[in-house]
Amino acid sequence: MTVAPTRKRFMLPIVIFVLLCGGVWFWAQNVETVLGDPTWILGWILTASVILPSFFNLRKRLIAFNFGSASVWLTLHVASGIAAIILFVLHTDGIWPTGIYEQLMATLFAAITLTGLCGLWTQLVLPRRLTETGHEYVYEKIPGTVADLRDAARQAVKTYTEATGSELLSHHYEKSLDWYFARPRFFWNNVFGGNAAWAWANAHMIAIRRFADPLQSATIDSIENLVSTKVVVDQHYACQSVLKRWLLAHVPLSTAFLVVVAWHIVIVHVYAS
């Protein structure tokens, strides 16, 4: 248990679930051949494959009880969700249904699937990127860290200004680095793994070095260190933001979806038993 489970642990359950869906499809074909209507049972199977992932949230709340490890639950959650896509297409015999309730459900389902897959991508891709920055920052502490960096940068600029009497650095700081140290920047570029922050920082540091007093190189070095640190902090802020906030979309959508599913089941039973 000391080596962390790999991303490949998702493979086998997904394959198994997809094969099961294949079996379901085959069964549905057989039923149609004998003039039966498989939509009914497909609906119940789809309901099961949608309710099962929602138990994951329940399991997290009941952590005091020994219901199995969360990583197994997550694997089942993902596999069941992917199976649900296939079952959805089988159940609705297409992608987009007629009828307003059904279209509402399809929209919510699509949104949940999309956010889920995006969330899965973030969980598989972003942690490695964070580790590879070489530093670790706690998300909730980042405001304090940024505030500290900002204070230190201002202090450094003050030191330089007092030492040289020149307005160069403070002027430059006002125009550029002040914005930079105000809060985490280059959010989306960092999410998608771009290097805009580094490029911007480099450009400004080159400019400062070019025109700064060589005698104050220690101060300039300290500013450069602060800027470099902030680049990493920004990366952490962006990636961890996505890692923490994507659930703000996924979970509420799924709650709304389950409500609509319950209503759909009632309607379908009333009008078409």
């Binding site: 962390a4 489970p5 952590i63 005091a64 199995g68 490890s69």
Partner: peptide
């Protein structure tokens, strides 16, 4: 509980 709760099994 910490070990069981990690959704990626990262914690041991």
């Amino acid at each position: 509980a910490c070990v069981q709760a990690c959704p990626n099994g990262s914690l041991s």
